[in-house]
Simulated scan of single mutants.
Amino acid sequence: MFPQRKHPLNSVTPTESRRGLAYALLSYLIWGILPLYFVLLKSVNPFEIVAWRIVFTAVLCAILITATRTWPSVMEVLRRPKMTLVIASAGLIIYVNWQTYVIATTSGFVVEAALGYFVNPVVTILLGVIIYREKLRPTQWFALGMTVVAFVIISIGLGRVPWIALILAVTFGIYGVLKKGIGARVSALTGLFIETILLLPVAAIIIGVVWAHTGSLDLLHSSPLLTVLMIATGITTAAPLLLFASGARRISLTTLGFAQYLGPTLMFLIGWLVLGEQLPPERWIGFGIVWLSLVILSVDLVRHGRANRLADAALAQAQTGAIPIVSHESSPEKPGK
């Protein structure tokens, strides 16, 4: 017999699918224009920004959990030490990602930050090879090699390694692996809340160090606008993540994979056209190679996704008796293959 496969998206109606795509695109739209938000906060210490971002995200998540009456789910996760440890590790990784991102966007490195998120799909593939021993197709290896070449070219042009892009790509890739490990057992809201409450000691230490070093905190001595913007970092953090989670449940991974390019594309355009960051020839060449590798990965994804869907359709027909399963006793293969 063929193994039974589940198709979670089969029950999604066209209306729900369109709504899911809208949620996903809106989440990436917010992530894409977020640099403009943090540029408004560039006069604030970037470490203080992230510290308050942790605090106000935790507060917002607590309010949402109270409103949705999901505290039992939170307590259930906290009673599982291994799962809590995974979430704590994810929290530390995403802190490094947040801190690097805020430093980049408030210091004139938005284009380099965009490069990190363009490269993230390739890093995710590489992590799959290292951690899960996944086998790559030739096109995936080729795209991986092209990305390495792109980083070498950009490094030569900059006279340094593009550390911001590397840190963002690697940390977000590892974060994705850790979140995949807990899968559907923890909702996006519960996971984000636990991550941020476990990071509260880190935020407290940062706030204490900044206060001791400067003698004041920007949150308490800034203009009303800056104060509101810092408080609202909780919304700008939680809203796109929850929209993304809602969209991901309603659309295919292929569609989601294409949607993810909206964020770094907007970041790149903002850094280049709005903030006026310089793009010497070496950087254009490097980005061009990265974009070409993403095109190759996308075509490969669509092609193999179509092949998998056809195989699944044939399997479903075979299981319902629409297509007879013919076995040959002389075949060396095991039944069901």
Rank of each mutant, 00 (worst) to 15 (best):
I125K: 00
G286C: 14
L301R: 14
G157N: 12
L178H: 00
K334L: 14
A204F: 15
A245E: 11
V290R: 05
T124I: 14
T255S: 14
L241P: 04
I182H: 11
M75N: 08
L34P: 07
L36P: 08
G176W: 14
G271A: 11
L292Q: 03
V161N: 06
M267Q: 15
L219R: 01
G116V: 07
R137A: 09
V148R: 02
A58C: 12
Y261Q: 09
L178D: 00
G20S: 06
A62D: 13
G247T: 08
I270F: 00
V44W: 10
N10T: 02
R303F: 07
L36S: 08
V129F: 08
T57G: 13
L294E: 02
K334P: 03
L25K: 02
R283L: 15
N120P: 09
L242M: 03
V299C: 07
A318Y: 09
Q140C: 08
G159N: 08
G257A: 08
V122R: 01
P121F: 07
L241F: 04
N45P: 11
S293M: 10
H213M: 15
T105Y: 13
W71Y: 06
V302L: 15
L226P: 05
L279I: 11
I130S: 01
P3K: 03
T190V: 15
R249H: 04
D300P: 12
T265M: 14
Q278P: 14
T84Y: 04
L115R: 07
L262G: 02
R185V: 01
T265N: 10
R69E: 08
L85P: 01
M267C: 09
I156L: 14
P121E: 10
E195F: 02
D218K: 08
R309Q: 10
V186D: 07
L25V: 10
A62M: 14
R160C: 02
K334W: 04
V122K: 01
A169Q: 04
I251V: 15
Y117N: 01
P3R: 03
N120M: 12
Y95I: 11
V152K: 03
F244L: 12
T139W: 15
L60S: 03
L9G: 00
A245G: 05
V209E: 11
T233V: 09
L200V: 08
S327P: 04
F244T: 00
L21K: 06
L115M: 14
N97P: 13
R5A: 00
V86E: 07
A259Y: 05
M1Y: 02
L158G: 01
V186T: 06
